[in-house]
Amino acid sequence: MELVAEEKILELERRIKQLEATKKKDQLSMVVFSGELDKLLAAMIIATGATAMDMEVKLFFTFWAISALRDKEKRAKKKELTSKMFGAMLPKGTSDVKLSKMNMAGAGLSMLKSLMKKKNVASLDDLLKTAGELGVEINICEMSMDLMGLSKDEMIDYPDLNYCGVGTYLADAEESAIQLFI
């Protein structure tokens, strides 16, 4: 009789372990690929909104999105010529990123910015600051940094800023309840 009970407990423990291994965390993982203002705004609104819902949020910045994390005031120390050229052609920070459509040589952009101000919508800068305060983790794709010729010393000061590769992203994504690519 006792043996049966013990076996049952072992079986249950095994099942719980199995379930725990597949259970998703209350976590949002998002690839932020786009370097366009409207998409970045959407990404950061979702990210800060998710932390408000008590979710853990992990952002993985790749390709064009990294430009938005450059600090306008900082200068990169030393770069090769090609990196320097590519870097110079990319936006430098949140105030420099453009709209995806309806940019209309900047007219659409300034219209959106003034509307946002009037309607009290947070700017990209504010959203980044809030995200930092709420503990949103930002991981930057190292390969994209090299690709775009950007260097770590020109990035913004952000509380939880890390550099990693795709392995880290996937490990995070697998255990997240929600995965997005923006």
Binding site: V31, T62, M143, G165, V166, Y169, L170, A171, E174
Partner: peptide
């Protein structure tokens, strides 16, 4: 890149 990451896993 994401795909090869998945392959490594």
């Amino acid at each position: 890149v994401v795909l090869t990451g998945a392959a490594a896993d």
